[in-house]
């Protein structure tokens, strides 16, 4: 299990992707990323929150207080329609980037 350094903007994209399948609280998001990546990616837990805050300011996600599994108060985040648009855009860009990098690596020049 290696910890990769997250490139800029990737964290936001991953958060949005996680939230596109349902709303979660902060811990839940971190856990989900860890699981979905087959444990390849580990998010430094604390750094999640400033990012979440930023995304909230820009209207990509919406947060609401609610009761969590262990009967404590937690903030649950959902993806907004604006966030969905951004997710699509970022996803597309990432895929183009990855394809481009892979292509260069594959070439034999």
């Amino acid at each position: 299990m290696t910890n990769h350094v997250f490139p800029k903007g990737a964290l936001e994209m991953l958060i949005m992707k996680v939230l596109s399948n349902g709303s979660h609280h902060g811990w839940g998001i971190a856990q989900k990323i860890h699981l979905l990546s087959s444990e390849a990616l580990t998010v430094e837990e604390g750094s999640l929150y400033p990012t979440l805050s930023r995304m909230q300011q820009r209207g990509w996600i919406k947060g609401k207080l609610g009761l969590s599994e262990n009967n404590r108060q937690a903030k649950y985040y959902t993806l907004t329609s604006l966030g969905k648009m951004h997710l699509k855009q970022e996803q597309k860009r990432w895929e183009e980037l990855a394809a481009g990098i892979a292509q260069v690596l594959k070439s034999n020049d």
């Binding site: 609280h25 902060g26 811990w27 837990e45 929150y49 805050s53 947060g63 207080l65 969590s68 262990n70 404590r72 108060q73 937690a74 903030k75």
Partner: peptide, 16 residues
């Protein structure tokens, strides 16, 4: 307040 709540929640969850 909300920030405090969610961070405390995270820590408690983690602890458990």
């Amino acid at each position: 307040k909300e920030l405090e709540i969610e961070m405390q929640h995270h820590l408690a969850f983690s602890k458990e």
